[in-house]
């Protein structure tokens, strides 16, 4: 189950998974939020995470890019154990992009400056080079004309696409999306999911917490279902949409689809 599934026809890039989560535990006070979660993500794979609110999906993502320290277990990123590298956390995070439910664009910076900030400040890139990257990325997320717009002048869908571009500017090897469309009006969900699906198709390794089953069907290689801090089910996209899921997963799907 927890081995790397590579779909037929896809290039078998590496034998080792890009991300290897081994039995991680996380508690807040006496609440055990993650219970011995294990998960592998292959390079270029897109993994969709579903599960009820409070099941630990966000916490799982936050542990992966070291925003939360784990209590036990290990996380290997590209074969390297990053679990206890608190002092080098910022170096690890440069290689892992994250997109949030509420976009979290910096309101004092224009779209282009939002994208340029990390390359300039964290990598010491020149402003001119960073600006070229910002321009290219804004084109990639289909809003080349918004370089000079400030976040409060953009729609939610546009803001989230700038946020994706901002994460991509660091050339991450892994993207984490935490419910990227749940704060959006329905008519804007599509434009964001399209960008994400395009990135997945280009081979960006991604973990996506979302309940957008259309996206899962379109872009996911595998889908996992979490409940109460445990990964209850891991299924390939085909198996999942073929209907071979266990009882608890099915009950949850019935809830979110109706």
């Amino acid at each position: 189950m927890a081995t790397t599934d590579i779909r037929p026809g896809e290039a078998a890039t590496t034998a080792k998974p890009q991300l290897e989560i081994m039995a991680i535990d996380k508690s807040f006070g006496s609440n055990r939020i993650l219970k011995a979660c294990s998960l592998n993500v292959a390079a270029q794979e897109t993994l969709v995470v579903i599960g009820p609110s409070g099941s630990g999906k966000s916490t799982l993502l936050r542990c992966v890019n070291l925003l939360e320290p784990v209590d036990a277990g290990n996380i290997f990123f590209e074969g390297r154990d990053i679990t206890r590298e608190a002092d080098k956390a910022h170096l690890v995070r440069r290689e892992i992009g994250m997109v949030f439910q509420n976009f979290e664009l910096f309101p004092h910076l224009s779209a282009a400056e939002n994208i340029m900030l990390a390359p300039v400040r964290a990598l010491g890139m020149s402003r001119a080079d960073a600006h070229d990257i910002a321009t290219a990325l804004l084109a990639k997320v289909h809003i080349p004309e918004k370089a000079d717009a400030f976040p409060d002048e953009l729609s939610g869908g546009q803001q989230q696409r700038v946020a994706i571009a901002r994460a991509l500017a660091m050339k991450p090897k892994l993207m984490l999306y935490d419910e990227p469309t749940s704060a959006l009006d329905p008519e804007m969900i599509r434009e964001v999911l399209d960008v994400m699906a395009e990135l997945s198709a280009e081979g960006m390794t991604s973990i996506v917490v979302t309940h957008e089953m259309g996206f899962a069907r379109r872009a996911a290689d595998r889908i996992i279902f979490m409940e109460a801090g445990e990964i209850i089910e891991t299924a390939t996209s085909d198996a999942f949409f073929g209907g071979s899921v266990n009882e608890r997963t099915r009950r949850f799907l019935d809830q979110i689809l109706h």
Partner: peptide, 10 residues
């Protein structure tokens, strides 16, 4: 906002 900054590797 801080979390977003940290997540970028700052």
């Amino acid at each position: 906002q801080r979390v977003a900054g940290l997540a970028l590797g700052l």
